[in-house]
Every structure is written in structure tokens, then in C-alpha cells.
Write a protein that binds this DNA or RNA. Structure first.
Length: 636
RNA sequence: GGGGGCGUAGCUCAAUUGGUUAGAGUACCGGACUGUCGAUCCGGUGGUUGCGGGUUCGAGUCCCGUCGCCCUCGCCA
């Protein structure tokens, strides 16, 4: 994070007089500057600071207080000449909220600090007002050590945790990202329109959060999983270019990067084709990186078909900061005598492999046995095992090598580009399992072999070694994944489901054959991928009622049911709906990557824990019987 | 719901194969000290080892159960 985060644009005071504009009669304790304002040019001036006591260092005749607000840090000195003032200063506790008036003076020569903005000066206190005291803290909120208290304790006292510099920086960064988005889109003619929180439950997709109706007992609103339908209706209404930084709610289990309520940049445009949306969004993405990190990432972003992403990287959100591509070896495996491979093929499966260049020595045979480090990764994603060979002394070795003829081994080496020291990893199974398992193995190898570095890891390392560090464009590897399939067959529900969502348009070429071969139909859908994270997803929408009705039918929804659930949408599509499409960016994930954290709770001011509880307020909680009576609800 | 990790002072962590009165740092309280900046030095308060049961002469440590937190798979159109 660069200098652009240092309270940039956040200071209310910028006049040379350091007074609040229009503040006629200021009370005696109100600040005239913030804790990040005083500089050598202010020496001799009398100023007043408001802030919190970060630390206190007491000597016989002097006490130093580091006073903190969200703008920065100022050292305040109390001297023993004024006994009353000095005694009062020595009674200050950590995190007391105080007002100090004093005279700006230079620090003693040679005692300046380069690491804080006010480090050349200090404030000699002449007056102290305690605005509020603070009891001993439940946990330490300074960040000098690396040991943070347990997260549940910090979440219980989030108002204290948010005083930490790194969380303050993150929230400032989040503001910067939102501001960039609004400025960028405003410049290009977009309107920010708010859509309702109380809406109608949608049958497909995630579980809804429901809100009971008091006026109509037994009926429920649903909180939006996204503003999808409303933004499409805005297009029908002719608003042409819409966006919203919108709260979305999904009642599903949480993860390190998933909260029950999260924020999306939701955007929709009329009279556009796919490339218009992609082009606009890559400009926006580049602008965000530029505003936050001061670097320019190359545009346009590479585009990768879904099919290529899955076969080469085993994922529809591949991390392209490293290669390690997956290669199909089904034909060679089928010609071998290895029972596991032959059985997988007989069951309609495939065999693919990764060549981990030079990794043979990094993984012992024990680590490669069932239950070992790498097989465990593959097994987590339903692979029955992970077969391997090593290339040593010009030969392939390992327990399965004997099942391959010399000719097959030669072909294998050629196809996988094998050299001595390489480790070959194979998975044989149904295609979906092979992709998931090898995709996970690839990610695992990428991290453990350090084939890429997160910018924040590199930064931490550099700081540890006292070396300079600058974020570089290659730390942000963007790509588009396009040409998604339209449908996937759900084995449990025994029906076709939408890969993206039911409002996504099929490719024009697939329109006539959508019903007869749904498995091959492609959608006008696209995902923005950054370093292995899906940071955005969207599509060109269906804008014709007949097409929408056909898609609903494919998903097992008869016309009657479709009309009951989405009649308003079908009617709207029939009322001069323009061609339109859009995208949604996961704002929280964006902020995580920009801020350098893997925990989504770090970029949300008041997050829920893993059980979707707010540990500070205690939500969710029981309510008064009267409230339930009003709603006509009985709790069993 | 499945798999994994964790739970010892307000906080962060120690505690040999099961073995004396469960220690340290920090925070807090008191004292010393004129330039510190994670100040330093001296002293002090602070514990039902998450909870319940079991094995044992003896349990923070072993076993069973339970609660809580985190990671992960499922799930998240």
C-alpha cells in the first residue's frame, strides 16, 4: 500500500490556519489539527489535538504520549514544571480519549522519526482535558508484536479492534475502491440506482434470507441474493447504464472468503455485446489497481475459454501467475497395463497429468503414498488416488512405471516435456473429478513450490530483510473466462440447471439446438478472474420473452410456474426490452486482494463469524413474544 | 452434515515418557529514572488448565462425552 492510503483525501482541515471553516465559537477542547498534521512549519504555533492514548512513556520529569487518531500519530510531551498538568498526564491510561493543547516544537536533534509523518516535531502540552477514560483493554490493540488476540475476542470488541492501524488502512482502502468505481462509472454516464431489499424469493440459487410480513401473516419477503432482476427491469425501463454498490445476502455456510451479507458492484448496460462489457470492466479493474497501488496492469486481459481453463488448469478460475499445465494422457494410459487407469477408462473416464518440473526431490515417496501430502489434496476432491512417476537418470521411476512399455514411456516423456528431476502426477477418473483433483493439486504445487508470490508475502519478506519493496503489475494476473456452458446436468435433482443463472442468454449459434443438445449449448457468460479468485461474473441476458420461456422450460419450469414466479419479468421482456448485459464484481474479494489479506472479515467493518453470528451485538437473538405475535409466528 | 486444527492468567504462549506449589512475556497496580518512542529497571495483583465424567498413588498431559472458535469439503444459480 502506498502513500495514497495515508489519510489521502480524508482530512477535513486543510487551510493554513488549521481551523474548522465556519466554526465560529469553538469549545475549549475541540481540535484545531489532526494527529497527522503538524510539521516543522508549525513550530511555535499553539494547536489542539483530539485523540486516543496509544502509549505512554514516563520519566521522572517528562512523560511522552503517542496520541492517535485515524489520520496519524503525534508525540505529546508533558514536562514536570507544571506539577498539576504533569500529574494528570501520568494518570492517563491506554486508549483514554483526550484533548491536548500545546505548542509545536522540533524534536531534539537526532531524535526525529522518519517512519511517521509528524516525526520531526512534537507537541509540548500546556493543557489536558480527559474526554473519556477507558478500562484495561480485553486485548492489546497496538500492532508492535505480530501476535493478535484470538479473532472471536476481537470480534466481540470490534469497536476496539477497528482502532488498529491495519484495519483502519483496510477500511480506507475500501473507501478508495468504492470512490474509484463511482467516479469511473459516473464519468461514463452510469446512474447509481437503489433497488429494494425486501423482494420476492427466487427458487433457484442460494438459500434466501426471509423476512416475515406483519401485514400478511404467513407470507415472506426475501432479502436479495443480488439485484439481478431489478437491474434487468431498469434496462427495460430505458435507464441504459446502471450500477449499484449493492448488499447481497445468501443464507449458506460461511468460509474464509464468504460472508452471509456481502457487497457487489452490480452493473448493467443496454445495447451492448459481450466485448463492450469486458472492455469497460478491464478498464475499471486497471483503474482500481492504479488508484490503490499506483501501478498499471496491462489491458486487455487475456481470454480463456471455459473448456481450456478446465482442461489446462482444472478450474474455471485458474491462477495464471504460474504455468504447470495439465496434459491429457488418456490414450497413453489406456495402452498401459496399469489396472487403475484401464478401469477408469472402461468406466468412461479419462487420465490427465501434471509435470511438476524439478519437483521430484521435493516430495519423498512417502509423501506421494496414499494419505500423503499430495494424494490427500487429490482425495479431498473425490479422486480415488494420485499416481506418480519420477524422472531420474534418464528413466522414469516409481511403482507404476513397470506397467508402461518403453515406447509408451518415451511418448509420455515427449508429451509432458520430461527432464531429469521432474515429478509426474496422474489422476484417472470421470472428467469432472480429474479436473477438480488436478486443479487442486496444481494450486497446491504452485504455492508449495513457490511458483508465484502473493504481493503481501513478498512485501512482508522484504520488510523482514530490510529490503525495499514495490508492488508490480505481475502481482495482479487478470483474465477472462468465457464461453461457459449454458447448462449442467444435476445428478441429484435429475434435471438440467443453469451454470450461470436462468437469465443468461445462450450463444446465437446454440439457440436452435438448445433443447435437443443442452449439454453442448454455450452461454454468453463471462467471469473475471484474478490470481485464482473469481472477482466478477456476468453475462449478456435474454431479452426476448420466447427465449426466456424456453430456458425456464429447460430448467424444468413449465409456463404456468414460470408465470407465477417471474411473470413480471416475462411481461417486461415482452414490452420492448432492449438487448442488455452486465456483470457483478465481488467488492469484498477485490478489497481482500488489494489489501493483501485472505480473510474477508478483515475488509468488512462489522463482519459475522463462521456461524453467521455478530459476536459484538449478539445477533441473531430471540425476540419479544409480542413481536412474534405481530408476525403470526410460533417458534417451536 | 464429513475431514482437520485449536482451547492453560485480561491477552500471547510455555510446562520432558503422566510426577513438587502450572511458568514467561505483555497488560494492569505501585515505585525509580531528563529525550523516550514496543523505553528501561525494581516490586506486586492475577489460574476451578473451556465444561462434565473416567483411568491412575498422582491428569494441563491419557480415554469418553460435550461446548466454543478457526480452516476445509459438501453448499454458495
Amino acid at each position: 500500500m502506498g502513500a495514497n492510503l495515508r489519510g489521502g483525501g480524508c482530512r477535513p482541515y486543510n487551510g493554513p490556519s488549521h481551523t474548522i471553516p465556519g466554526a465560529g465559537s469553538m469549545s475549549e477542547w475541540q481540535r484545531t489539527v489532526t494527529c497527522n498534521d503538524i510539521r516543522p512549519t508549525h513550530v511555535g504555533q499553539s494547536v489542539t489535538l483530539n485523540g486516543w492514548v496509544l502509549t505512554s512513556r514516563n520519566f521522572g520529569n517528562q512523560t511522552f504520549i503517542d496520541l492517535r487518531d485515524r489520520y496519524g500519530l503525534t508525540q505529546v510531551v508533558f514536562e514536570a514544571d507544571d506539577k498539576t498538568l504533569f500529574d494528570a498526564a501520568n494518570k492517563l491510561g491506554t486508549e483514554f480519549c483526550i484533548s491536548v493543547t500545546g505548542t509545536v516544537r522540533p524534536r531534539v536533534a537526532g531524535k526525529e522519526r522518519a517512519d511517521i509523518d509528524t516525526g520531526a516535531v512534537e507537541l509540548l502540552a500546556t493543557k489536558l482535558t480527559v474526554l473519556n477514560t477507558c478500562p484495561p483493554l480485553p486485548f492489546q490493540i497496538n500492532e508492535f508484536g505480530s501476535e493478535l488476540a484470538n479473532e472471536d475476542i476481537r470480534l466481540q470488541h470490534r469497536y476496539l479492534d477497528l482502532r488498529r492501524r491495519s484495519l483502519q488502512k483496510t477500511l480506507i482502502l475500501r473507501h478508495r475502491v468504492c470512490k474509484t468505481i463511482r467516479d469511473f462509472l459516473d464519468t461514463r454516464g452510469f446512474l447509481e440506482v437503489e433497488t429494494p431489499l425486501l423482494g420476492k424469493s427466487t427458487p433457484e440459487g442460494a438459500r434466501d434470507y426471509l423476512v416475515p410480513s406483519r401485514i400478511s401473516h404467513g407470507e415472506f419477503y426475501a432479502l436479495p441474493q443480488s439485484p439481478q432482476l431489478y437491474k434487468q427491469l431498469l434496462m427495460v425501463s430505458g435507464y441504459d447504464k446502471y450500477f449499484q454498490i449493492a448488499k447481497c445476502l445468501r443464507d449458506e455456510d460461511l468460509r474464509a472468503d464468504r460472508q452471509p451479507e456481502f457487497t457487489q458492484l452490480d452493473l448493467e448496460m443496454s445495447f451492448v455485446e459481450r466485448d463492450d462489457v469486458l472492455s469497460l470492466m478491464e478498464q475499471l479493474a486497471a483503474e482500481i489497481v492504479k488508484q490503490v497501488h499506483g501501478i498499471t496492469v496491462p489491458t486487455p486481459f487475456p481470454r480463456l475459454s471455459y473448456a481450456d481453463a478446465m482442461s489446462k488448469y482444472g478450474s474455471d478460475k485458474p491462477d495464471l501467475r504460474f504455468g504447470l499445465e495439465i496434459v491429457d494422457v488418456t490414450d497413453l494410459a489406456g495402452a498401459s497395463e496399469f489396472g487403475v487407469f484401464k478401469n477408469a477408462l472402461a468406466a468412461g473416464g479419462i487420465v490427465r497429468a501434471i509435470n511438476a518440473k524439478g519437483a521430484a526431490e521435493k516430495f519423498s515417496n512417502t509423501q506421494l503414498k496414499p494419505g500423503g501430502e499430495l494424494p490427500k489434496v487429490a482425495e479431498t476432491f473425490k479422486a480415488k488416488g494420485l499416481a506418480w512417476m519420477k524422472a531420474e537418470g534418464g528413466k522414469l521411476t516409481g511403482t507404476i512405471e513397470k506397467f508402461f512399455s518403453d515406447d509408451l514411456k518415451a511418448k509420455l516423456k515427449e508429451r509432458l516435456g520430461v527432464a531429469d528431476g521432474d515429478l509426474l502426477l496422474f489422476v484417472a477418473d470421470k472428467e469432472a473429478v480429474v479436473c477438480d483433483a488436478l486443479g487442486a493439486v496444481r494450486s497446491h504445487l504452485g504455492a508449495s513450490l513457490k511458483l508465484y508470490r502473493n504481493w503481501w508475502d513478498e512485501k512482508a519478506e522484504a520488510e523482514k530483510e530490510g529490503k525495499p519493496f514495490a508492488v508490480r503489475p505481475e502481482h495482479f494476473n487478470f483474465a477472462w473466462v468465457v464461453d461457459f456452458p449454458m447448462f449442467a446436468f444435476d445428478d441429484e435433482e435429475k434435471r438440467w440447471v443453469a451454470i450461470h443463472h436462468p437469465f443468461t442468454a445462450p450463444m446465437d449459434a446454440d439457440l436452435p439446438t438448445m433443447e435437443t443438445s443442452p449439454g453442448t449449448a454455450k452461454a454468453k457468460a463471462y467471469d473475471m478472474v484474478l490470481n485464482g479468485y473469481e472477482v466478477g461474473g456476468g453475462s449478456i441476458r435474454i431479452h426476448r420473452q420466447d427465449v426466456q420461456a424456453r430456458v425456464f422450460k429447460m430448467l424444468g419450469m413449465e409456463m404456468e410456474e414460470a408465470k407465477a414466479r417471474f411473470g413480471f419479468l416475462l411481461d417486461a421482456l415482452n414490452s420492448g426490452a432492449p438487448p442488455h448485459g452486465g456483470i457483478a464484481l465481488g467488492l469484498d474479494r477485490w478489497c481482500m486482494i488489494m489489501a493483501g489479506t485472505t480473510n474477508i472479515r478483515d475488509v468488512i467493518a462489522f463482519p459475522k463469524n463462521k456461524q453467521a453470528r455478530d459476536l459484538m451485538s449478539g445477533a441473531p437473538a430471540a425476540v419479544e413474544p409480542r413481536q412474534l405475535r405481530d408476525l403470526g409466528i410460533k417458534v417451536g
